[in-house]
Design a protein around this nucleic acid. Structure first.
Length: 339
DNA sequence: CAAGCGTGGTT
DNA sequence: TAACCAAGCTT
């Protein structure tokens, strides 16, 4: 009877998917892929990764780029602080580490946006170092194989799994071990209906033997989202330009652009923070769900009459240039109304 | 530790 | 439809 570790690695080497970031072990490419893959499905990431690498082929290219350009390349991927932290970290690697991604847990873990999972993933995949990389897949797989019923929503539970992985990980091929756990979780040991009959480590799985694989992992539920109602304006001036504004540099959708929004309870008809407008009716309702809240937007069309907007970073721009600005998906839904 | 931070797919 | 989930990190 082979070991869990041996069976897992053998399976991974044979069955792993062909993915663009698996072409080589370039630490930069591994890094980019790991950041993009945070809370994001493989199929979603693939086109973003390829386009991103084309646009920023090296650490130096990304370090030298304009932040708005990076956000534009990230447009639609979500969790935009990932992009801004990534560029901050890349700049630090260029200036403080001679453009070489550091090889120690302490150094790489100090980079912005590189947490406990990502540091292990980069060190094991790019540098073949035996460091745990515990993500949601790993916790699901190991909670079943080892019959662990701790709440995986708690941070302390992730540390428990890091300890377990440390004792299980292969010193010969830590990359295949870590990736094998994740690949197994993504393809076989899925959350809903795991394919236990096809599982390469079935004989090692305590949950399967007890018939409780569907009950694991244990995860406490999160609460419901808050609903926020906005009126969103598509304001055109006499030159046919459209009003857009840049969001604050911190918080939700930081530094992205949007059509000006006003909380529904703060709407003043005919006035958009100092800009006198003539409203021409509602043209759409856009509902956008975030992980923690919901926007319900009434989109109104309007013409600028007089005055100026007392809003930070608001400006009229030609319609053709809208595509050059990074917009959240909620506002991309409004773009078609411009033609 | 809990909350904030996106988006799209599945059930 | 609503809930859940996905190669998490920061504060």
């Amino acid at each position: 009877m082979e070991s869990f570790r041996g069976d897992l690695i053998e399976w991974f080497k044979k069955e792993q998917r062909t993915l663009p970031w698996r072409e080589n072990q370039d630490p930069y490419r591994v890094w980019i892929s790991e950041i993009m893959l945070q809370q994001t499905k493989v199929e979603t990431v693939i086109p973003y990764f390829e386009q991103f690498i084309r646009k920023f082929p090296t650490l130096e290219d990304l370090a030298a780029a304009d932040e708005q350009e990076v956000l534009k390349a990230w447009e639609g991927l979500g969790y935009y602080s990932r992009a801004r932290n990534l560029q901050t970290a890349v700049r630090e690697v260029v200036s403080e580490y001679h453009s070489e991604v550091p090889k120690t847990v302490e150094e790489i873990g100090s980079l912005k946006g590189v947490g406990p999972y990502t540091q292990g993933a980069i060190l094991s995949i790019a540098y073949d170092l035996p460091v745990p990389a515990v993500d949601g897949n790993v916790m699901r797989v190991l909670s079943r194989v080892l019959l662990v019923d701790e709440d995986i929503a708690k941070q302390s539970t992730r540390k428990l799994f890091e300890l377990l992985v440390s004792s299980l990980i292969s010193s010969k091929d830590p990359s295949s071990f870590n990736q094998g756990l994740m690949e197994l979780g993504a393809i076989v040991c899925t959350p809903k209906s795991p394919s236990c009959l096809l599982c390469p480590v079935q004989e090692h799985c305590r949950a399967f033997h007890k018939g409780v694989e569907q009950e694991l992992p244990v995860k406490s539920s999160k609460k419901t989202q808050k609903v926020l109602r906005y009126r969103t304006y598509v304001v055109e001036n006499e030159r046919g330009e459209v009003l857009i504004e840049k969001r604050p540099e911190n918080g939700l959708l930081a530094n992205l652009w949007q059509y000006p929004m006003v909380k529904e309870e703060e709407v003043e008809e005919g006035d958009l923070d100092g800009l006198k407008i003539e409203e021409n009716g509602m043209i759409d309702r856009v509902r956008h769900t975030f992980s923690h809240l919901i926007w319900e937007m009434e989109v109104h069309r309007a013409e600028a009459v007089s005055g100026t907007v007392q809003r930070e970073d608001a400006r009229f721009v030609p319609k053709e240039t809208i595509k050059n600005y990074p917009f959240p998906v909620s506002h991309q839904k409004i773009h078609p109304h411009l033609r």
